[in-house]
Design a protein around this nucleic acid. Sequence first.
RNA 1: GGCGUGGUAGCCAAACGGUUAGGCAGCGGUCUGCAAAAUCGCAAAAAUCGGUUCGACUCCGAUCCACGCCUCCA
Length: 472
Amino acid sequence: MTNELTFFNTMSRRNEPFVPLVAGKAGLYTCGPTVYNFAHIGNFRAYMFEDLLCRVLRYFDFDVTQIMNLTDVDDKTIRDSQKAALPLKEFTAKYIKAFFEDLKTLNIVPAAQYPAATEHIPEMIALVQALIDRGYAYQAEDKSIYFSIDKFPEYGKLAHIDRENQRAGVRVKTDEYAKDSVADFALWKAWDVGDGDVKWDSPWGPGRPGWHVECSAMSMKYLGKTFDLHTGGIDNMFPHHEDEIAQSEAANGCTYVRYWLHCAHLMVNGEKMSKSLGNFFTLRDLLSKGYTGRELRWVLLGAHYRKKLNFTFDALEAGRETLRKFDDFFRRLHAAESTQPAKPEETRQLAQDAEAGFRAALADDLNVSEALAVLFGLQRDTNKLLEAGSLDAAAAAPLLEQFRQFDRVFGCLEVDAGKSEAVPAEVIALAEARQAARKAKDFAKADACRDQLKAAGYVVEDTPGGFRVKPL
RNA sequence: GGCGUGGUAGCCAAACGGUUAGGCAGCGGUCUGCAAAAUCGCAAAAAUCGGUUCGACUCCGAUCCACGCCUCCA
């Protein structure tokens, strides 16, 4: 059985066996949302990928500690809270609440902690001070503190950025005159009038932390100076993650992160979905169109995380159909009755083989497509047995259990959801009336009964053993 | 300009130097009063042009196209 997980490490640009710092444990840091608005489904592609990663790590018996930060102070958050005439905290609280609701709707397993930037200012100040003490940072004329990239020769090792070849000129903004070098980035932003009452005291005067320093300070606090995995969207690779590495390694003198995993974008009409382009859907948009979190979850799970995924409503519809078939399938499997000798040893073997294929697929840098092929393969084999009438409860049990195992990773099969569904007595009565009419060859009446059932929200299906009623 | 990714059947999407990926949709058979579900089967592919090879969707090169990062961004 394959038990060796491999991940594509952005740092080395190749697949590497995952060997954690501490055997059996995995520490993971995830760049979370900036809470000035509702997250869109492109954002959720990244959170879904991270959920998949954590679920797979757990499937392989790792004890996972996931930390996801909340960026609750930055230029846009300040700007929009001022527009809304609300204190920063009150403004972000609304979107933090919405974010957690959305995670739940998508059945994303919660992280261990969700540290907020504004709750960790002392840690950030300490980190900036360490960088100043070690000669990596300086205060400019505008009172802000900057990281001096020239002092960190390894700068660019993650993104493979060669500073010589960067386009000259484009990065210069009018307010950056104070920096020693254009590429230097802010660790601490000095307060200015536009920030209103958003400010914290520091040894360098009032201000607020720079974006990159937030993640470094919080990840170190919860996971240590060196930790296993850091994830995020590919657009965070540069400059955000590159800057995190520079700050953290300069301050600590040791490797910051051992495995970097980056998720590709969700596209819509061939362009990346983003707030700045305005071409996005929020989860709430989809819910209001009648789609479910489960259906979106299925769609987002459908492509490998390092490949761009084009979002379409067709895909959502196809996903809905697939899930419907699964619901029906599990209902039939729960009700399995044999007309021939059942063979539990055969189904146990089927389950075992599927398990092996499933693990091998996921171990290969989270190849969900192949894992899904295994899932569908087992479904097909199971259907054949059901069709042949050679499954009873005992023979079905190992199969059901295997699907439950699969769902620890997929999180949307709902294997047991239809099991205990109570069908109202009047619906049963109606179905029985239809059955009687059919026997009497009164098909007009039988069809009328079926229409009535449909109106009540049920479908009736005729099987060799009798009828079967299920919700529409 | 620099760095990078990708172009697979109607749609979505994998693996792999030679053997059916898979899903949705479609077509035909079985089952059914009709349906539905299921099942069996079928069809359909590799942007273009070269090269390497006994053999290439898979390796190499060129071309075209799309997309991303270099600026807040999952």
